[in-house]
Every structure is written in C-alpha cells, then in structure tokens.
C-alpha cells in the first residue's frame, strides 16, 4: 500500500493530537509557572519556581507517588503471575473466563467507594472483625482509608490492576507458546524450577516490561482514588497539582503550574526512555 497525501495529513493529525497535546501541556504549564498566564495579574516572575523548588511539597509528593505506584504495581504483577502459574487453563473456563474482564470496567471513583465500604472504620471488614470478637468498637479498626501510608490506595489499585495482569500474562503465555517451550525445555533435561526461571519468567518479563512502565506511569498519576481515600499529606502528585491549580485564592496557582511542568518533563522522559529501544528493534 502506497502512502498518499491524505495519509501524510492523517499522520500529521496524529502527531498533533498525541505529541502536540503533551507539548501544549508543557507550554501552558511553563507559561503559568513563570506567571505569564493565570494568577490575578499576569506578569513574569520566578517566585513560583523558587517556592516550589525550595519547599519539600513537590519532592515529597513525587516520591510518595512513585512509592505508591511501585507498591501497587509490583505485588499486583507478582500476584497475577502466581495466579496464572497456579490456575493455568482453568482461568479460561467459565465462569472466570468472562468474569476476569469485568474489573477492567471499574472506574477509580467506584473502586474508591467500594474501598470505603469494605475497608472503612464501619465497613465490612470491621463488622466481620467485630462479630468474630476481635474488635470492640469501630475506632479500634486500623485506618485503611485516608491513612498516611496509603494502604487503602494500594489495596484499591491492586484490586483494579491484578485482573488486568492475569489476563495479560495468560495471553502472553499463549502468544509466546510457553507451554510448548516449557515441554521442549523439559525434554532437554530442565527441572520444573529451571523451566520457570530460565524459560517462562524471562519470556514473560520481556513482554511485561513495557506494559508495566505504562501502568506504572498511570498509577503514578492516579487521581480519583487518592483524592477520595488518600490522606491530605502527603498527597499523590495529581492531587497535589490539582489542589494548587484550583485553590480558593489564586496565589498558589503558579506553583501548581510549576509542579505540572516538572511532572510532564519527568514522565515524558520516562516515555522517551521506554520507546527508544522499541524504535530501534
């Protein structure tokens, strides 16, 4: 199929609608961070950058976000891997074969609501613990929602992410013909453990790494879940930016733009690193 001028126009549209949108975000954030847009009276200033760079809020928030993203992603992938290895083709049989797709249609707002009702002080777990005689009052139930460590956020993320990775790992196993390769490995004298460590895991990891990077970035920028069931401090980066961009008084808006600027540059950098080797392959 030969490219026509319409094809070239379509590719241009694509570039504008993807890279262009992110570039726009960077430009707007940069303009806002030096006071050219936003605020009460737009004028160039470096005060917002100085304020952001000299206080720990942004760095704390970034570190916290990275930690939450890791703490949500790694156990989810590990759990999914264990589930696929242990349950095998059972996953594809009814009713699970169809049910596994349902968590993909579970938005953050709803997941947070479920978390509140299950993990909250007067939630299901607390009631069960009380009935079992472990608790005397709801106050004794450990804070899992709006807690400072973010246990609630992590558990909610895990419930949303794990089924996706179960599906992905199962699909990868079929695509890469892992069972056939494992059988081949055994016929060449590999033990079960060797098959796992030298055949299954390396092949799966190769397919999982780019997806994990994308998911990690999405979790890093998670918004609704931490907004609803996260603590005030520290807050995840999207919540922190939002809080600064939409304040009651406009004085901190410039700092929000500066934070957004750092966020865009950081994540574009991660995207760049991830997509470069793919382009070379």
């Amino acid at each position: 199929m030969l490219s026509s001028s319409t094809d070239r126009a379509a590719r241009l549209l694509f570039g504008v609608a993807t890279g262009g949108v992110v570039l726009l975000a960077l430009v707007v954030a940069a303009a806002g961070s030096v006071g050219i847009i936003g605020g009460i009276e737009p004028a160039f200033t470096t005060a917002h950058w100085l304020a952001v760079l000299s206080t720990p809020t942004l760095w704390l928030s970034l570190a916290y976000s990275a930690l939450i993203a890791m703490a949500s992603l790694l156990p989810s992938v590990l759990l999914a891997l264990l589930i696929v290895l242990a349950a095998g083709e059972r996953l594809r049989r009814a009713p699970l074969g169809a049910l596994l797709y349902l968590p993909l249609a579970f938005p953050g707002v709803v997941a947070a609501l479920v978390a509140v009702q299950v993990l909250g002080g007067a939630g299901w777990l607390s009631r069960i613990a009380h009935t079992a005689g472990v608790l005397a009052a709801p106050e004794e139930f450990p804070a899992l929602v709006q807690d400072r460590i973010g246990v609630g956020i992590v558990i909610t993320h895990m419930l949303m992410v794990t089924p996706f990775f179960v599906l992905l790992i199962d699909r990868l196993s079929t695509l890469e013909r892992l069972d056939a390769l494992a059988a081949l490995g055994r016929s060449l004298g590999a033990t079960s453990a060797q098959v796992l460590w030298t055949i299954r895991l390396p092949i799966l990891l190769r397919g999982l790494t780019p997806v994990c990077t994308v998911y990690g970035a999405a979790l890093l920028a998670s918004f609704e879940v931490p907004l609803l069931i996260g603590a005030q401090h520290p807050a995840m980066i999207a919540v922190e930016i939002d809080r600064h961009l939409h304040p009651l008084d406009l004085s901190t808006q410039g700092q929000g733009y500066a934070m957004a600027c750092v966020h865009v540059m950081l994540l574009t950098g991660i995207w760049w690193r991830m997509s470069r080797p793919a382009a070379r392959r």
Binding site: T18, V214, I241
Partner: peptide, 14 residues
Amino acid sequence: LLPFFVSPVVIGMS
C-alpha cells in the same frame, strides 16, 4: 502512548 504518561489533570488544565 505519550498522552497516557501525563496526568489527565495536567492535560485537562492545558
């Protein structure tokens, strides 16, 4: 993939 690396809050703002 790039738009998914940036928070919707920031994309929305711009």
